[in-house]
Amino acid sequence: MLTPVEEIIEEIEKDRKSGASTLTDKALECFAVFAEQSSDKTLQTLQDQLLLICNELIHSQPDMAPMFTVTQRVLSCVENLKNQNPSPEKIRKTIKELIHTIRTELVQAKEKIAAIGLSLIKNSDTILTHSYSSSVKEMLISVHKMGTTFQVIATESRPGFEGRKLAQDLGREGIHTTLIVDSAACKLLQNASMVILGADRVTEKFFVNKIGSYSLALCTHHASKDVYVVCDTTKFVPTSFSTVESKLYPDEEVLEEELPNVTVENPYFEEVPLSFIKGVICEKGLLSPKEIGVII
């Protein structure tokens, strides 16, 4: 039987539809449960267990930068306590306080991102987006609730079809949304005021998002329209960020039965050069690609 912490990690690993923000929240919950339920009696055993959890979280979703940045923040916090010769209970308490702090920061980041979105999106705009990003969704809903009237074109985002969920969520909030097949995105770009994408990782050279983002960003760039990326800074990591190799996902998501001499490849994520985008909307402001390089 899996422990509660192991159950959360397994849930994260099997999740193929949620964006990085949702998975970050699950990772924070994993640490909160560990801090609450851990029965380790010595400092060393607690640290060993914590390191194991961090490693498993990073491997559970290797393309998601917050799995790295959040785990490193937890480990650094514990490491900083070493000189105080803390008790296991002290470490558990410190982890709980850190998780609360991170969650508060993420809420504040959403509010700041929404404010930037309000200044960017105008009445009668049409926003084209791809895949499902909770950061994009929450910004659009916030802008809508503050009185701006706009429309959204959303790709269905094969093979997981998470774009359908985005369209459903936006529609329920009263935002008129047109759902399209992925391959129609570049054609319908002519109807869009701008493209807004989420990101699972942002480096000084590129951002990582759902497969199909590169071609959409390239088409938008050549059409002289703007691409914006929406995310908080937990997704900022240097290009040298070392992680396990990106996954290929199940063949049956693309092809239900085997065909002679046919091989399936099903990557979920790809890198998109920052040179294709206008900027990144985050809690630090609307940052240009050059400014991203300075911050990271």
Rank of each mutant, 00 (worst) to 15 (best):
G163D: 14
G163A: 13
K165G: 00
L166Y: 01
R172L: 11
E173Y: 01
G174D: 09
G174Y: 03
T177H: 01
T178S: 02
I180N: 06
V181F: 12
V181K: 12
S183G: 05
S183M: 11
A185M: 12
A185G: 08
C186L: 08
C186V: 13
C186H: 02
L189P: 14
L189T: 14
L189D: 12
N191S: 15
S193W: 04
S193C: 05
M194S: 14
M194K: 14
V195G: 02
L197Y: 06
D200M: 08
D200I: 04
V202W: 08
T203K: 12
T203F: 07
F206E: 05
F206I: 01
F207N: 00
V208H: 01
N209Y: 04
Y214H: 07
Y214F: 14
S215F: 00
S215N: 02
A217T: 13
A217F: 09
L218E: 01
L218T: 00
L218D: 00
H221W: 05
K225L: 13
D226A: 09
V227A: 02
Y228W: 06
V229A: 03
V229E: 02
V229R: 04
C231V: 14
T234R: 13
F236Y: 15
V237R: 08
T239C: 15
S240L: 03
F241Q: 13
F241P: 00
T243S: 14
T243I: 09
E245H: 07
E245A: 09
D251M: 10
E253I: 10
E253Y: 10
E253A: 12
L255C: 11
E256H: 03
E256C: 03
P260A: 07
T263N: 11
T263V: 05
V264D: 02
E265V: 12
N266R: 07
N266W: 04
Y268I: 00
E271L: 08
E271D: 06
E271G: 00
